[in-house]
Write a protein that binds this DNA or RNA. Sequence first.
DNA 1: AAAAAAT
Length: 493
Amino acid sequence: MNPAFSELSLAEPLARAVAELGFSSMTPIQAQAIPVVLQGRDVMGAAQTGTGKTAAFSLPLLQRLLKHASSSTSPARHPVRALVLLPTRELAVQVAQQIELYAKYTELRSTVVFGGMDMKPQTAELKRGVEVLVATPGRLLDHIEAKNCVLNQVEYVVLDEADRMLDIGFLPDLQRILSYLPKQRTTLLFSATFSTEIKRLASSYLQDPVTIEVARSNATAATIEQRFYRVEENDKIQALKQVLRERTIGQAFVFVNSKLGCARLARSLEHDGLNSTALHGDKSQDERLKALDSFKKGEVQLLVCTDVAARGLDIKDVPAVFNFDLPFNAEDYVHRIGRTGRAGASGLSFSFVCGRDTKSLAELEKLLGKKVEVEPLELESDRRRFGGDPGRINDGQRLWHDPRGSAEARALRPPPRAARPAADPFFEQPYQPKLAPEAKPEWEQQSAKAGAGTRSVSPFIRTKRKVAALFKAATPVAAGAECERQPDPEPVA
DNA sequence: AAAAAAT
């Protein structure tokens, strides 16, 4: 049994908040990290998903801010003393909310800044003065450069999801932010996954760090049952619906690798009457927050999402995670399935493996350090075709449906393309064969010789286009004016 | 083969 929070001799306002939140005994990462952070040491902390890393750094951090008065000589009453950086906006919101709860009975102020929202309210909060600032990198840089906040008094920096913060996409922004901070400070890095390369890189940002590793890093929570199904790319939607029905899954995250795929899947599921919503980076921030909120409240059953939701999001009692696509990075798999099985609860994960996932699967096996058993998944439509029992009823729902749809639906469907009249005669024109290579005009052969990236367009057409562009910019086209159709550009070789 | 983070 781990020690209780009450043994920590936290300052009264913190202890009160902790008691009110019903925290009793610490998790392993909390038991190990909190005393070390209380000593003011740099920390690299690794622990499985859903084991309370946020509290593991927030509580001792707040305790230290309370115990050690600001060394500030600045006239500002509330200089930023602690900075917490996160890789997604939703995660920034979540961590800020948690910190606010812990700091509820203290005088310490905190706020969160992130992109996609109006700068003004954030600026007002910053100007009011905060000791703890939670942020995503891009927007924080905006605020720094607009002089909305001054970070030269920062005593503590936390990189949550540290391996992501240190990866190539974030590193330039991160380095710029760190360049605004005092060299003399405490740095805390936390994540469920640390590759050996990232560990090495990370240690260059730490001074005499204490490494805390609860279980092996990259380990998945033992309470999550992981299944892998061999599914054809085109059968994935059907497979998803089938598993949802057969296992009577309640809420679930459904991870898709691309934003477009995510939007499409969500639309398809909604069309089929499944209660789902999409969360990805092409949505407005309002929509993103709304989608997450409705999932949190349980109004939505399926959160169809990209890796924007892979890390850190703490939503209680989500029973299952689907990897509709197997992630490219094995680390992301660990984070994705970590959305379930949180705080010791049990969880289920289903991953669809198709032909092109061989490489991702091998990466995953390497990271998990074990062979992954991929089971075949018998689809109901096949069962029916091969003489199964198509008439079974489950919760009033048929277990299979005719892939061609109902008779009514078929009648409504447009006839095949060939039977339709041409929508636009232009597209029905006979195919024009391209010039044989030896017949190519001299200019084209030259531009091909000139090297890759040169578009095969004659100098004549190029000039003509420039003039046309200038002309278009200068003269509005009169209504009904006749325009000569410009030839299409040659396809790039 | 992607996503995320600034507009």
